[in-house]
Computed example of a mutant assay.
Amino acid sequence: MMLTPLLVDVAGTLAAASGPLRYALVFLFAAIPVVEILVVVPAGIGLGLDPVATGVVAFAGNVTSVYALVAFHRRLSRWLRTRRPATDQGPSDRYARARSLWDRYGLPGLAVGGPVLTGVHVAALVALLAGSSSRPVAGWMTVGIGVWTVLLVAGSAFGLSLLGLA
Rank of each mutant, 00 (worst) to 15 (best):
T4Y: 12
T4G: 06
L6G: 07
L6D: 10
D9T: 12
D9K: 15
V10P: 00
A11L: 00
G12E: 11
A17N: 15
L21K: 08
L21I: 14
L25G: 02
V26S: 13
I32E: 12
I32T: 14
L38N: 13
V39L: 15
V40F: 10
P42Q: 01
A43C: 06
L47F: 11
L49D: 10
D50P: 12
V56D: 05
A58K: 07
A58Y: 02
A60V: 13
G61H: 01
G61V: 10
N62V: 06
T64C: 14
S65V: 08
A68G: 14
H73W: 13
R81I: 00
R83N: 05
R84M: 14
A86V: 15
T87N: 15
T87H: 13
D88V: 10
G90V: 05
G90E: 04
D93A: 15
R94E: 04
R94M: 07
R99E: 13
S100G: 08
D103W: 04
G106C: 05
P108C: 02
G109K: 08
G109M: 07
A111Y: 00
G113P: 00
P115C: 02
G119N: 04
G119F: 07
G119V: 05
A123C: 03
V126Q: 11
L128D: 03
L129Y: 01
S132E: 15
R135S: 14
V137R: 06
T142D: 08
T142P: 03
G144S: 02
G144A: 03
V147L: 11
W148Y: 04
L152C: 04
S156Y: 07
A157T: 14
S161T: 15
L162H: 11
G164A: 13
A166Y: 06
